[in-house]
Simulated assay, not measured.
Amino acid sequence: MTPRDAADSRWSDLDRPPLNAAALRRALVREGGLWTGLEVVQRTGSTNSDLVARADEGKAAEGAVLVAEEQTSGRGRLERQWTAPARSGLFFSVLLRPAEVPVARWGWLPLLTGVAVATGLSRAAGVDTALKWPNDLLITVGGEERKAGGILAERAGDDGVVMGVGINVSLRAEELPVPQAGSLTLAGAVTTDRDPLLRAVLRSLEDWYGRWRRAGGDPTASGLQETYAAGCATLGRHVRAELPGDRSVVGEAVAIDGDGRLVLATEEGGREPVGAGDIVHLRPA
């Protein structure tokens, strides 16, 4: 075996065993459930890109789950790169087709996915999690707020949305891509076994998606708006919203409105809803 072969071996890092695809399918894919198929690939550029392509070609049904042990071109919002060693995290995408929900309410899907991921990880990993609007998962490492995960939504044809999730599970301090990143390991997780973590997250997502869909996408009736606000670390913070067109707004994040937008109380005394942009949590002076 060459050094390169050894580095690529599924068992080259014994602290990071491969996912058990067959066991995951047995646990998650069932008659009448949301998840209709689950595939684990060893390496790909982006699970989101792959699943969008399959959906566009008519080769993926709602509830398809695509998981990668390693992503070489993982993306976050604003085309930011998401990189991590093989088997060090959970990198997966799911295809949703919420036909009974008005398209105007589909903007809640990234927030719904955030709630589901945070809920699932809190239960399975025993780690306190919070959400940074609109799509970052935050944990605490050494008393400091760190990003451990992110969510990316992409349209798939006229009737679908692919939700991509990346979660740092076992990254060590020297492996972090940036100092502001974190992982479940560094946050003191009770387990870094990715099989139960993925099961917990997907079951939580199935539960929240079902509630939201049965409510016709209504964020109040489904409990989504209230739950997201309760777990959102951005609310109550002084923030800077960097908006499209090189514009920025500074103010206090005071609410999540019915469209899933972040409402800022600006320094000029007004209220400004932010539907898209990059949010920076400002530290107190």
Rank of each mutant, 00 (worst) to 15 (best):
P3H: 04
R4N: 00
D8W: 13
L14A: 13
L19E: 06
L19W: 09
A22T: 13
L24A: 02
A27P: 03
L34H: 11
L34G: 06
G37P: 00
E39W: 08
V41L: 14
V41P: 03
V41C: 07
T44Y: 00
A64G: 02
E69V: 04
Q71G: 09
G74T: 06
G76L: 02
E79G: 08
E79T: 09
Q81P: 00
Q81G: 03
P85A: 11
L90N: 06
L90I: 07
L90Q: 07
V94I: 14
A104C: 10
G114W: 12
V117C: 15
S122A: 09
R123L: 10
A125K: 08
G126N: 09
W133A: 03
A148E: 00
R155L: 14
D159P: 02
G160A: 08
V169W: 05
A173L: 11
G182D: 00
S183I: 10
L186V: 11
L186W: 10
V190S: 15
T191I: 07
T192E: 14
D193P: 02
L197N: 04
R199A: 07
V201E: 12
R203L: 13
W208F: 05
G210Y: 04
W212F: 14
A215P: 12
A215I: 08
A215S: 14
G216Q: 10
D218W: 06
E226C: 04
A230G: 12
T234S: 12
T234G: 09
G236I: 06
E242T: 11
G245L: 06
G251M: 07
D257R: 13
R261Q: 09
R261I: 01
L262K: 03
A265K: 05
T266W: 06
E268Y: 01
G275H: 09
G277D: 06
D278K: 12
P284T: 05
A285N: 01
